[in-house]
Design a protein around this nucleic acid. Structure first.
Length: 872
RNA sequence: GCGGGCGUGAUGGAAUGGUAGACAUACGGGACUUAAAAUCCCGAGGGGGUAGCCCCGUGCGGGUUCGAGUCCCGCCGCCCGCACCA
């Protein structure tokens, strides 16, 4: 047999990419009659270069897209760029390159990199969110949402960096200082634009139950984030009354059943009443200022001691006649949640207990754990928050917690304070409105004009889009749009008098909250064409990182609802299936000086405990460190370009999909990628050999049983690979492909020694199917093999191989025979054999008779076609 | 603190409550080679036995079951999310 040349991906891969391009293989039409299927991977931020995390993400999506296409679907598989964001402005500050230039150059680089991976994207639908055509539509959406009452403008507290003159996200505040400037961060009240996501709190929560194509973990994270809690809004009358202040203080509680144990009231330092009182109370003023100063250091909050200051006010105890409760301002009460004030029941809330112990307030247990002695039950350092019966509580005594909540709610509903019901049942959510104003240049301008007379006026349709000016400078701190000589000076659309353009831009999360819809009609003159969007949406399978489990996915779910209200979409849930992939991790290496070393500069020797590393160039020893997420800072990165150049895209894709389950982290290793490369060569060799062996003059006939065995192997593998791809279990699909190719190779070797006509035909058929099932994962190799096999057209246009169900079942089955639950032997019986026969055969096994030692079995359990268990 | 997940050979990992370790990597042995690489074949959870076989084994301790890696309870360890949410 002639020797087979090695498969050369460097030649073959570009060739097939060109062939797909020429055939327009992945350009799809909205009106294609085939059933639509939408596969989407989270689009990348154009940071500069593709990394291995992208490779893994897109490899997974591509397998599914190609598989579904082979299954006859019209598959939408688009790609674009999440292109607005701060890094572009930082680059501008550092290198002087304009954000636009920097961003589009990065896109060009990364697109070229993606092209070498042979991904089945419909590139005709590509867009970047910084394209004017895209953000123009986003401005229309914003104005429609404003009209629909889904946008508001309100004051809110923000982290303000006084040096950079910008708002910082919580993550950008480190130890109370700006991450970039190092300046002490201030809390400022700014008027900002908000999307009213909280309007949908209940809906967003309730709909999670229906998202059964999502990981439970993500649904749970969203549930917690929305944070629903049901309780009572309760009024406490000031006593003695002071009408110059307020008649009553309002609190929110989820534990009204513990009201008899209440021993104080605490206001948030941001509570209006606290501000009012502080005017005449320097100590209180100082306390509030101190809390604000500490407030920004989020990290310190968890350890911060419960602190408070007595305001001098007291309120009447609502159920203990004649008693009063002191009113404090306390550092642990948040203004943003509930009523910004609480009542403290120290016996049954840990924070209240800590506070009460510090300020010597009474601790009165009112919930008795099941079985506890009411006379002896006491609370020391640990509050009791569990279930039980109410005691020490007059008319609530003896009730369970839930019953007591209802009873006390009814009690307060029937009473009034200041002419209002004293208690009102209320549901609260942790979810707050989404503040989208950013004092930055490289984002979507908010299409509003501020007029002294008319307030915030929407930019008229005719004046849209509001485009970003190119001539901006980044030398001065603050927002370049604000510094621009004339951009913001415009006339009021209503009165024509001088007015000021809104210079804030939108949070970049807005851009990514509806891009999936835009892909369905990327050139439309409206944000979407609803009929087309509704045909494609929801996205059948969305794939991306777990880091977006909350914000991005929640914002997108909100946007779908907002777009439905404004007539741009006909559905609520944007993503039917969601999959969160694991990270790509790699060992870290450090030299003697403690500097990180790139894996490419490291030579590894030995195995196990003997494993050593040294520097490739110098030979100096290098310490092998922890396995961590690939990151530039630790240099434990492998460049996809390098891998594609050395091994080819298919090998990189194959390695990313094999071994690790897709939801878990995958460890990149040199051995792993080499193994994947070897498999690529093995398939190539097998296909070429099969063609030669099948063409050899026959010397006999292969027994029917051997033919059937191979066919079974092939059909089972095809079925298993399909099932596994559908379930996104790519690692299991890979294992079945290995089994298939190993089986085919063994068969080919046997046939080479004694060629037959029937064997040759069966082998060829098997190899053809192998090629078709590896195609979603190694598409270039599959095309090359297909050509060798003389297949018609491109694999890309070839349907998934059919499976003969008859070949998936056996005539005979091997049953494991257990004695007392331990496997002792096996019997082969016809499939579906009756219990009597199975029992007879099992009991006649030598090992079974020996174990039974002449006694009759106590019981024989037979699971048809699976197992026999003899209980001795 | 609250919530969730995970723990299986040297390693990554398979396994609808039904033959634990599929498949791969690394390793050992062999074939081919002057040699190496590549390739192919064989071996392999631990222990015992010439062998047929036997004992032990999925973090630890219990339980349910004819049967548990899988279900339940309690620990230990690691990872992730949220975090003063009343």
């Amino acid at each position: 047999m002639k020797s087979i040349e090695r498969y050369n991906p460097r030649v073959e891969e570009p060739r097939w990419q060109q062939a797909w391009d020429d055939a327009g293989a992945f350009v799809i039409a909205n009106d294609d009659p085939r059933e639509p299927y939408y596969v989407l991977e989270m689009f990348p931020y154009p940071s500069g270069r593709i990394h291995m995390g992208h490779v893994r993400n897109y490899a997974m999506g591509d397998v599914l897209a190609r598989y579904k296409r082979a299954r006859g679907f019209n598959v939408l598989h688009p790609m674009g760029w999440d292109a607005f964001g701060l890094p572009a402005e930082n680059a501008a500050k550092k290198t002087g390159t304009h954000p636009k230039q920097w961003t589009y150059a990065n896109i060009a680089t990364m697109k070229a990199q993606l092209k070498t991976m042979g991904l089945s994207f419909d590139w005709t639908r590509e867009f970047a969110t910084c394209d004017v055509a895209y953000y123009a539509q986003q401005q229309k959406l914003f104005l429609d949402m404003l009209k629909a009452g889904l946008v508001t403008r309100k004051k809110s507290k923000v982290n303000w960096d006084p040096v950079d003159e910008t708002v910082l996200a919580n993550e950008q505040v480190i130890d109370g200082r700006g991450w970039r400037s190092g300046a002490l961060v201030e809390q400022r009240e700014l008027t900002q634009w908000f999307f009213r996501i909280s309007e949908f709190s209940e809906e967003l929560l309730a709909a999670l139950d229906g998202l059964d194509g999502w990981p439970d973990k993500v649904r749970l994270m969203q549930r917690n984030w929305i944070g629903k809690s049901e309780g009572l809004r309760l009024l406490f009358a000031l006593t003695p009354s002071d009408m110059t202040l307020t008649p009553a203080i309002e609190v929110f509680t989820t534990r009204p059943d513990t009201i008899f144990g209440a021993s104080f009231i605490a206001l948030s330092p941001d509570h209006p009443l606290a501000a009012e009182l502080s005017a005449a109370n320097p100590a209180l003023r100082a306390f509030i200022a101190e809390v604000h100063r500490q407030g920004t250091a989020t990290e310190a909050l968890e350890k911060a001691e419960k602190q408070g200051i007595f305001t001098g006010l007291t309120v009447a105890h609502p159920v203990r006649e004649g008693e009063t409760l002191p009113v404090y301002v306390a550092n642990f009460v948040l203004m943003e949640y509930g009523a910004g004030a609480i009542f403290g029941c120290p016996a049954h809330d840990q924070r209240d207990l800590d506070f009460a112990r510090k300020y010597g307030l009474p601790v009165r247990p009112v919930v008795l754990p099941e079985g506890a002695d009411p006379a002896a039950f006491a609370v020391a350092d640990e509050a009791y928050t569990g279930p039980g019966r109410i005691f020490n509580s007059a008319f609530l005594d003896g009730l369970a917690v839930d019953a007591a909540k209802r009873a006390i709610a009814a009690h307060f509903a029937a009473r009034t304070v200041d002419g209002r019901p004293q208690g009102v049942v209320e549901t609260n959510y942790r979810l707050r409105d989404w503040g989208i104003s950013r004092q930055r240049y490289w984002g979507c301008p908010i299409p509003i004009i501020h007029c002294e007379e008319h307030g915030a006026v929407p930019v008229p349709d005719a004046d849209l889009p509001v485009t970003l000016p190119d001539d901006v400078t980044f030398e001065r701190p603050g927002n370049p749009l604000d510094h621009h000589p004339h951009w913001k000076h415009v006339a009021c659309p209503l009165c024509g008098r001088p007015a000021r353009r809104e210079t804030d831009t939108m949070d970049t999360f807005v851009d990514s909250s509806w891009y999936f819809a835009r892909f369905t009609a990327p050139d439309a003159a409206t944000p979407t064409i609803p009929a087309i969007a509704d045909r494609w949406l929801p996205v059948d399978q969305y794939i991306g990182g777990i880091e977006h489990a909350i914000l991005h996915l929640l914002y997108s779910r909100f946007f779908a609802r907002a777009m439905r209200r404004t007539g741009h979409l006909g559905l609520d849930e944007p993503f039917k299936g969601m999959f969160t992939q694991g990270m790509v991790v790699h060992e870290t290496y450090r030299d003697a000086a403690g500097d990180w070393v790139l894996p490419a500069d490291v030579v590894l020797e030995g195995a196990g405990a003997e494993r050593r590393a040294r520097h490739a160039a110098t030979g100096a020893p290098v310490a092998i460190g922890a396995i961590e997420k690939m990151s530039k800072s630790k240099k434990n990165v492998v460049d996809p370009d390098e891998i594609v150049r050395t091994y080819g895209a298919d090998t990189a894709r194959w390695f990313m999909l094999s071994d690790s389950p897709p939801e878990r982290d995958v460890q990149w290793t040199a051995a792993g990628i080499e193994g994947a490369g070897r498999f690529q060569q093995r398939v190539w060799k097998l296909v070429n050999e099969a063609v030669e062996v099948a063409a050899l003059p026959p010397t006999g006939t292969t027994p029917a049983a051997d033919i059937a065995a191979l066919q079974k192997l092939v059909h089972r593998a095809v079925a298993a690979v399909g099932d596994n791809i559908e379930a996104l279990r790519f690692n299991s699909a890979v294992a079945h492909i290995y089994e298939l190719s190993n089986g085919l190779a063994r068969f080919a070797a046997t046939l080479a020694a004694a060629p037959t006509a029937n064997g040759g035909a069966t082998l060829r058929e098997g190899v053809e199917k192998l090629v078709l099932v590896i195609a979603p994962m190694m598409p270039h190799l599959a095309e090359s093999c297909w050509a060798v096999l003389g297949g018609t057209g491109l694999v890309t246009d070839t349907p998934w191989p059919a499976v003969d169900p008859a070949l998936l079942v056996d005539a005979d089955v091997v049953l494991a025979v257990q004695v007392n639950g331990k496997r002792r032997g096996e019997i082969s019986v016809p499939k579906g054999a009756d219990a009597a026969r199975v029992e007879k055969e099992a009991l006649s096994l030598e090992v079974v008779t020996r174990m039974l030692d002449g006694k009759a079995p106590r019981k024989v359990i037979i699971v048809p076609d699976r197992i026999v268990n003899v209980v001795a």
